[in-house]
Design a protein around this nucleic acid. Sequence first.
DNA 1: TATTGTTATACTCTATAACTATA
DNA 2: TATAGTTATAGAGTATAACAATA
Lengths: 158, 158
Amino acid sequence: MVNKTDEVLRQFSGYIIKRAFNVIQADLNSTLKPLGLRMTSYSVLSVIASTAGLRQSQLADALSIERPNVVQLIDELEVAGWITRNRDPSDRRAWVLTSTQAGRDLFRRATIAVQDHDARLTAGISDTQRQVLIDALMTIEANGQKGETNVPVTIPKP
Amino acid sequence: MVNKTDEVLRQFSGYIIKRAFNVIQADLNSTLKPLGLRMTSYSVLSVIASTAGLRQSQLADALSIERPNVVQLIDELEVAGWITRNRDPSDRRAWVLTSTQAGRDLFRRATIAVQDHDARLTAGISDTQRQVLIDALMTIEANGQKGETNVPVTIPKP
DNA sequence: TATTGTTATACTCTATAACTATA
DNA sequence: TATAGTTATAGAGTATAACAATA
């Protein structure tokens, strides 16, 4: 039965996204906890493990995280021995981020867990619906960034 | 052009939702700021203004906010004169939340701003796609709440 | 001058344990 | 004993200003 409260919330799409996101984050964080990762640190590790020659500023852009907040995330992964920081010889202001073998092994195991989590939470959603979901979310993100000064990472439609 | 970083992120649907949500929250908060509201306080006001005889625990359930966190949100709205707390005569432990005239006026104006924000961010998304988006997000939320007591999956070492 | 990374800091949201007063 | 609300607190994410080193 749909009561008035539900009606109100259904018209407020931002709040529906918020609630879905909270559920995803909580589930993913408990999924990753045994591996020593959280949603954010997993996403950082995944970008570093998948991209050669990555700088912190590029990482920040790729994940839409502010640069100051990237610092402590990187520190965390470096202390754990999953990535290394090396001076970029062509620009001594910058650090090049590289995953270690241990970092890549962890990323591989974590990805299996993340895929399982993803399958669990998207159960009952068809591939077509899933594609609409992803496209719609990317449209929303792009619409929101239209009025901003910074240029987001471009992710083209398939 | 699709680089490897983009590919990785596209397979990680939780992160796409996260980024869309961050954009929505930032846009909505700046939309509501001139009215003295934030995303969360607007959602609280909207439920109170739309539901008669509401208790704090019901509000917490409706918005999936923990009860302790509801307290300060309510305090905020009460101090501003937008809602009142009244003892429930049938259960003296509980408070009944009621919006004031000022609260309802604010809610009406805020809703116009929120609808404008919503239309701006969902531009380019058809009604059909929007319905798929909402349904998919609600499915995800429901899937996540199924195994509330869930134990993380054990991941085999490679 | 501008950019990369950094420090410091502040605000918001979320989550849990433990308390009180009522039931 | 159970529930409604509360207090205190801790953790995480996000955002901005200001700085040093380098370009």
